[in-house]
Each structure stands twice: as C-alpha cells, then as structure tokens.
Nucleic acid binder design. Structure first.
Lengths: 193, 193
DNA sequence: GTCTATAATTCGATAGAC
DNA sequence: GTCTATCGAATTATAGAC
C-alpha cells in the first residue's frame, strides 16, 4: 500500500465518474438494461464511450454501480405497531419519487437476470430484515415481507413503469389511505379478514 | 373480394403460423422483448427465420400477434358482492399459471413502449370494464380498477418475473386468503380502514 | 412455401496514439 | 486521462433462387 502524494485531493476523474453514473441511472430507468446503450449514456454525460469501459469495465459493471441502492427503511421498532403500514407506504412513495435508481432497477429486473438477482438480494437484505425487527413469528416473516413487496412493487410498476392513467393521476395522499391498510394487514394481521 | 377456391381447407401454413406463435410466447415470456430474437424463436419452432418475417412482417408484428390476450374476466354481476375479491384473485392466479402470454406481456411492457401501450389497453378495455358492471360510483371506478391492477400485477411480478422466493414458494390457497380481502376492499370498500 | 445469401445497422469491447 | 479507430459479433430485414 503506497500512499498517494495528495491523499484527499479530488481527482478530475471523480466528476466524470459521477456524471456517468447519473446518466446511466437515467437511461437504465427510461429504457431498461438492453436498450440503454453505453454510447447513449456516454453522450448524455458528454464524454467518450470508451471512458465508461475504462471506469466500469463492462456494461454489467456499470449497471452494478448505477443500481447500488439503499432503501433506507425506517426503524420499525420506533414506530407504533398500528402505523407500520402508513409509515412504510409513505416512505416508499417518497423514495420512488425522489430517486430514479429504483425505477432503473425495476425495469432492468424484468429482463436481465443479474438485475433480478440484485432485486432479490435487496428484498432479502433490507425488507425482510426490517420486518424481522419487530416481534413477528419468524416462520411468517419472509411471507409477510413478500406480500408487502408484491403490493409496493405493483404500485411502482403501474405508476412509474407501465403508467396506467388512474395510478399516475391519483393523489399520493389518497394512495397512502388505500394502501396503508393493505400493508398493515400483511405485516401484522391474519389472512382471511 | 375474390373467394378462394377451397374456402375452408386448412392450409399448410396454418400449422407453421401456430408453431411460430407458440415459440414466440415462450421466448417473449422468458427473455422479454429485446432479448427474444427472431432467430431463436424460429429455431424453437423448427422453421427458417425468414418465415417469421413472411408471416408477421416484423418483430413488432410478431409480438402484437403473440401478445393478443383475453383476460376472460368473470361476469361480476353473477357473483355475490362479498366475494368479488376472492373470485378475482382465484381467476387471475389460474390465468397466470395456465397461459404464459401474460408473463410475456408483463416482461415486455417493462421495456417496450408498444407492449406498455398494449397493457394499458388491456387494463382499460377489460379490467375497468369488468369493474364497471356492478354499481360502483363511476367517479371511482377507474381508481378502484387501478388499485386492483397494482396488487395483481405486483403479485405476478414478484412471483413469476423476479421470483422472490417467499412468493414463489407460498401455497396458492394461502395467497388467495391474503390477497382476496385486499382486492375486496379496493373494489367495494373505503380507504383508511 | 421454404430456404440461402446478404445487406445495413448497431452494439460491446479493445488497441493504441497523444 | 481522453480520444480515434476499429474489431468481431449479433441483430432485423430484404432480395431472390428453387
């Protein structure tokens, strides 16, 4: 390990790398994995396509870097048990609207095996983990988290990907009032009622 | 309009056309629109790739033919109002499992604008229509149908596309018992409870 | 009706000059 | 660190022989 001459000096390449990542997220979110080309991403970032390869090695490597994502799920042990559903759906809506990385991951996961694997990992590592924090029967934890994922991802799919008009137009607050009870039941309720 | 010499004689090409459609649905369902190539589809159908072009004109034309789909939604006016949710989720699960056309449409809709447009049409023409048959306030019909679509498509996405383990392993009957109340509330209930 | 041959693009990736 | 040039492979689509 040889220390660099100027340890914390920001390199010129950092700005380029960041520009590439930003453009990559946009393209992957808008077009999916296959249709988003390195050439188009480079053009958006105003750099040469070969720079993308130099910094990220391959298209897969670029996607892996661009799809790095933390759901930043709230600590549910600090939330009143009756408000799990509402807190979660509010959090997800804000997270989806504010960061297109999730849309990129969702679109790519439909057709790219690597992206699907990444989404499974994100689900297992972050959502299942969050659901485990409060005292759920461990035998049902994964299933409850899966049901939550089905409603949350279906909401994202219809609102941001396929863009069904009623789901695009609906007021976020009304969305919360419809979906919060669903998530609440998936997390703390029993089936059949 | 000149009548053919043998009006109802099955042509040899009909079998070829059917084989192409079957292979196309499989490939589109498994790989999505971009990764499913005409060459691979033709190989599956044991015919020459140029036949696909001859019969369907283009890749888009082939997809349009392969993604033709009727949800065959049941007549809800013949169902007790308290069982809308259960009837619907049972119907959807059976439909998804029995016909891969829906998976093909769902995967393709993530990345292909034409497929997304087709899915919006299927939603508007079939699901919204079915929800309109019973006496729902017309002002909320489209929104209720959209919410149902969000849960049903999210279920399909997590179970058949991304294949989250808990959603793949869960027993269909248990899935019904969890999701039926959700759809019931989206169709006939009020938000917030 | 079926196939061969190929045109016309486009893409990811590499080599190397500066 | 950035760019030019290009390779090799794969794709949709077309033209035309049989």
């Amino acid at each position: 390990m040889t220390a660099p001459a100027h340890p914390n000096r920001p390199r010129r390449s950092d700005a380029t790398r960041a520009a590439i990542l930003r453009a990559a997220r946009e393209r992957f979110a808008a077009d999916g994995y296959e249709r988003a080309t390195i050439r188009a991403i480079a053009a958006d970032a105003r750099i040469d396509p070969s720079m993308v390869m130099r910094y990220y090695g391959s298209k897969e490597g670029l996607f892996a870097a661009a799809a790095e994502f933390d759901l930043r799920l709230p600590d549910l042990t600090a939330v009143p048990p009756g408000q799990f559903g509402e807190v979660l759906i509010r959090h997800f809506l804000a997270r989806w609207e504010g960061d297109e990385t999730l849309a990129a991951l969702l679109r790519a996961a439909s057709t790219n095996p690597g992206a699907a694997e990444r989404m499974r990992g994100l689900f297992a590592d972050q959502l299942v983990a969050a659901v485990s924090t409060f005292g759920t029967d461990p035998a049902t934890t994964a299933r409850r988290a899966g049901l939550v994922a089905s409603q949350v991802l279906g909401l994202a799919f219809t609102r941001y990907i396929v863009r069904l008009p009623p789901m695009v137009d609906v007021d976020p607050e009304e969305l919360v009032s419809w979906v919060a009870p669903t998530l609440q039941r998936y997390l703390t309720g029993l089936p059949e009622n």
